[in-house]
Design a protein around this nucleic acid. Structure first.
Lengths: 349, 349
DNA sequence: CCCGCATCTGACAACGTTGTCCAGGCTCTA
DNA sequence: TAGAGCCTGGACAACGTTGTCAGATGCGGG
């Protein structure tokens, strides 16, 4: 019976299509396996001459340590996971980058995934990250029930939620003061004489959206203004529906003189709608965005700092891993009203 | 001698601070180790009753398969790496997202890292990803020598370069037609009567920057225009220096009547500078950006599609992994001139 | 009633690394 | 010069999973 090559057969010390291992390096350098390990990890106890021989063998074979095996042995992966809604959203880019910088400072890599605002996909992603044994997780939740994370928390996976709180579990949260920010933004419009103010926001099942709506209501109530149902549009995000919602508010039976936009995508769409109108309508948006200052008029916004949000969360994560942090906490970062013109327009009835 | 707990001691089947393993699940379910593996991987040959018992044990213990061990055994990680310049840059967010979507369609996770345009950091990141044995790499190179990747390529790591070509190695590349785009953009300005046209771009050691500069020169030469050295500003990116460069071009001995901006960050800064001037200066920018249409005047740009760039690259990557792709290729995607007003302003001398 | 076969299950090795521990050779001192 | 102590290097097991292979079980037919 003729022998055929099988996976695992060795040819001149290296496996077919596979990578050289420490064993191969050891054989080539004429030293023991552990000595190679010591050199690779910069551990003491290797004479300069031996080290040189090993380095040469590593170079010659193009050896790279297999971190999967290392992880298996050591238990830490030096990587953290980030689950967010959509990396293409300008709000999350800087956030992700901030998390990455902190991770890098701690020698960790960042694995990230977009949930597309789908709770199921969020869970799928988070569990995939856990299966890869990330040391920690930064999650911008899409769903509102995170009990599926309980075994992970128990197993010591550091976890921080960002932008929105975790559902039904105890965990660290870092978020912006959506309620206060929205209330201040709407109050700002009221202070400039507006009473008929529209609100366009995301689905209230999203925590931030609900909080911003609550802020809107609170500001209106504080001013003794009764809110017409037709002034509120909830759960619309895609440009076309935002456009329709805005048009309806502007031409309804009780037309608004100002609009509060619940997030940057909505704001931008509303700006587009208003650009097509001749009537002056005031606008305040939640979330800053690039070029807001260059539009005519400049767009007044309630700004939250995505990078700080990410940095704060990541730092807490690594403090959890240190062990210097135990009790879950809720950290709320203040927002900042930036006036640029659009929010200071007087009502035009 | 009192016994003290050591790492490795077992308490009711689970290790301290560690996670349950298949062995633990097997013990609890009263089955063999391999049977658990079969259930977890949906392999056939398990009776419904046994499967139920195993599932219950998994549930009860909160077991998650350890993918590090799995990878070690199987050789594939079902993850790909993406190295780009800066995730916070609006050009890379959509690109990253597009790569992620393709990866997801192939059941792979995305690990990404920002090189911050630093060749050393790029190499460090790429090698860290290789150590984690990603199946493939999408790289937006910062450096111009990628020979360090040779062992990886030989070992079968699928690799695609995006936006800029690889240096000194043979590899797949997907990029935009920077030269043609810039030439067309500048020609557009020339067609509208401009002859004194400024160019502000990134360091020429960056391939795209060099190509765009080449396009600028080509368009000028085609029109028989001699370029004044003071019209070109190379290697400036940070807002302050771009601002100074623009001001100098506008007020120099031979002031320009139009500016071609080499990338979106430069374009935005130039828009800011021009907003502070009363003299009308034409502007064409490379790269589209959000809200370019809402500025007054709208900003004419040479648009490249970041998402398509990312998608194309990722698709090639997985075709490499299929084995259906062998020879490295260079794919150049066309750019598109979008006229919005700023590029059609006549020269104001 | 027993054999053969199909079906289900488990023991065992291997993946590539690191931690533990011991051997051998060296230096230093009494 | 012998003994103690240090330094370097290597053998071996373990991490948690999957592939291989053989054993156990049950069933139907001769």
């Amino acid at each position: 019976m003729p022998e055929t090559a099988r996976r695992g057969d060795r040819v001149s010390g290296t496996r077919y299509g596979n990578r050289p291992t420490m064993k191969d390096v050891a054989a080539r350098a004429g030293v023991g396996l552990k000595t190679v390990s010591r050199v690779v990890n910069g551990e003491p106890g290797v004479t300069p001459d031996t080290e040189r021989r090993v380095q040469e063998a590593i170079e010659a074979l193009g050896f790279r340590r297999n971190d999967s095996a290392r992880v298996l042995r050591k238990g830490r992966t030096a990587s953290i996971g980030l689950v967010l809604e959509d990396l293409a959203d300008p709000f999350y880019g800087p956030l992700s980058r901030a998390v990455e910088e902190v991770a890098r400072a701690h020698g960790a890599l960042l694995i990230n995934g977009s949930s597309a605002e789908d709770p199921e996909r969020e869970q799928e992603l988070v569990l995939a990250l856990c299966a890869r044994r990330v040391d920690g997780l930064v999650v911008i939740p899409a769903g509102d029930d995170h009990r599926y994370l309980e075994p992970e928390l128990k197993a010591g996976v550091a976890t921080v939620f960002v932008d929105r709180p975790a559902g039904r579990i105890e965990a660290d949260v870092v978020l912006s003061d959506s309620f206060g920010g929205a209330r201040d933004g709407v109050a700002h419009l009221i202070a400039h004489g507006h009473r008929r103010i529209g609100f366009i926001g995301d689905m209230p099942r999203i925590h931030t959206a609900a909080e911003r709506l609550r802020g809107y209501r609170a500001a209106m109530e504080d001013a003794g203004i009764e809110v017409e149902p037709s002034w509120m549009s909830l759960g619309v995000t895609d440009p076309e529906r935002v456009r329709r919602a805005a048009e309806e508010m502007l031409s309804g039976p009780v037309p608004v003189t100002a609009i509060f936009a619940g997030n940057n995508r909505v704001t931008v769409t509303v700006v587009r709608v208003l650009a097509g109108h001749d009537r002056q309508v005031a606008l305040v948006g939640f979330d800053d965005f690039e070029l807001a200052d260059l539009l005519k008029p400049g767009v007044t916004v309630v700004a939250q700092d995505a990078a700080t949000l990410g940095r704060t969360a990541a730092e807490r994560l690594f403090r959890q891993l240190d062990g210097s942090l135990v009790t879950p906490e809720r950290i709320e970062l203040p927002t900042r009203l930036i006036t640029r013109g659009s929010g200071e327009l007087p009502p035009a009835d």
